[in-house]
Amino acid sequence: MTASVNAAKASTRRRRRSSFLVVALALVTTGALWALLAPSGSAQDSTDSSEAVRAGRALYLQGCSSCHGMNAEGGNQAPSLIGVGSAAVQFQVGTGRMPLAAPAAEAKRKDPVYNQTQIDQLGAYIQAQGGGPVAAKVTKTQLDDADLAFGGELFRANCAQCHQAAGQGAPLTYGKYAPSLTQSSANDVLNAMRTGPESMPVFGSRQISNTQSVAIAAYVRDITHAKSPGGNRLGSYGPVPEGLVAILVGLGGLLVAALWIGARQKV
């Protein structure tokens, strides 16, 4: 193409031909340089992630698009997923809340429908639709090294009002509730904080830093998995159920024993 144009111009004016040559040379050089340098750094990644996005889109169209729309734009029954990020996918699909079994005040935690590879693919697809918080991948070492006491302070200041001081969950309004955290993994806790699923407020990284959020996750792991030296936790609901059990079982047992002794007494 360039050659034929240049040939046509060559017959008219020499000055014009030279300027065309410069432009053509510049274009060819730039194109060659771009082709050589630009994609070289991430060639492998881009094929991988684009494959994941493609697989994720296929899964999305099959399992999610009927409510969330063909392009994740949302619909009458479901919110838009643009900008929610792979953290939201990991939380909602990884805890089995999505796909929704039946419309209710709140999505219940259940066994996940998709395996982790599929969830990652779905996450990659949603992440490609406008970005958003990336799914957390916290390591055991990070949790072990976290400041538990500080995590506890942050938990009591930001989480305990809804999730109860021992993470046992509590009711909200109109049938909604803050779920128990006993089954939540550290990654679930981090993903929920960053994305604010359902009624939960969003706790962004500028409000609670990554170090602080890992400390909170470590504290949740601690209170929900720590051994209870005092016997049965009774749901960790505090002194009221403990007192109730003490009265019913303890005093009731004594009463039964006393009646039994009295009944055996020969008059």
Partner: peptide, 19 residues
């Protein structure tokens, strides 16, 4: 905040709450 951080515009995400 309780931790002593002065709150700046943009520290809270939309749907966020802080004491």
């Amino acid at each position: 905040t309780d931790e002593g951080t002065f709150v700046k515009l943009g520290d809270l995400e939309i749907g966020g709450i802080a004491t």
